[in-house]
Design a protein around this nucleic acid. Structure first.
Lengths: 146, 146
DNA sequence: CGTCAAGTTTAGCATTGGCTAAACTATAGT
DNA sequence: ACTATAGTTTAGCCAATGCTAAACTTGACG
């Protein structure tokens, strides 16, 4: 590898970033689900499959299948034909996600982004910000967007 | 849906965001590939499958399979056992991606994020920022991170 | 010019995350 | 209590993205 230079990150460093992104994508779906389920429970007192499907914009059957995986993963519990509950681990993940989401969205708003765009972009970005970046964003908002 | 409120975005609005994210994920891989191929061509004069695999942290066979899709999609051209080229469309996508990447990374640095984290986070974030946010980030950097 | 290493491709498999259509369950209303 | 209807589940399909192992090319070197 005679071509390595100071300014160019090594292949290993770069691949690490991509690996992390692939890992993020794996948990991303799970986070979206538990976050949404938590929201539904808070708003409506319960989370039903149909509502999840509606809000995520996917088919009912997809939700069923995914929930099965989440159940295997210990994030949710459910009985056939009943509504969905979060396990303690699920709640933790949901709260984590909602915290991140709030910080990112608030940050974008402080940056001057429109509400609409802030909502959409924060949904995508929230799963890819490190704690370091999150902290910086929170700081930025705290000192009034300067 | 008697429960709709001002502060709570409608299910349709929310699902739109999630739909966009799923769509983003589709193009994300393609962008990562063409961006990386463009970088390799610029750095080494050519892009070889092995290098792509190494930098992305995936197996060789995975690269082959993905490149076939990208070729079908009109982003790259290649002949068996030869190195990889970008089509004009591929170059456009690569340049677009690199532009975004640069803005996001520069922005994170201006925010005070460490180089290491900025590199990693920007890799994940770049695919999820709208033009509006991108513009705001560029503006922020331009006025010296205030 | 034959051989070997490096690189590439093929074959075959698994998982994830989508879908539709059809079957099933629960429950509200008559 | 019966029966619609709304909601849920099952079955079966597909595409994308990953993997390993085995086969094949290319090009360099003796």
């Amino acid at each position: 590898m005679a071509l390595a230079r100071k300014k160019v990150p090594s292949a290993k460093t770069r691949s690490a970033a991509f690996r992390r992104i692939r890992a993020d994508h794996q948990s991303e779906l799970a986070e979206d689900y538990v976050e949404l389920i938590a929201d539904l429970i808070d708003e409506h007192g319960e989370a039903r499959g149909t509502d999840v499907a509606l809000r995520l914009g996917v088919a009912n059957a997809t939700v069923v299948k995914t929930l099965k995986r989440l159940q295997d993963g210990g994030l949710v519990t459910q009985e056939p034909y009943r509504s969905i509950f979060l396990t303690p681990v699920g709640w933790k993940m949901a709260d984590d996600g909602r915290r991140k989401h709030k910080i990112v969205e608030g940050f974008l708003l402080a940056l001057g982004i429109s509400e609409e765009t802030a909502r959409i972009d924060s949904e995508g970005i929230e799963h890819h910000v490190s704690e370091e970046t999150l902290k910086a964003m929170a700081r930025f908002v705290a000192r009034g967007g300067r």
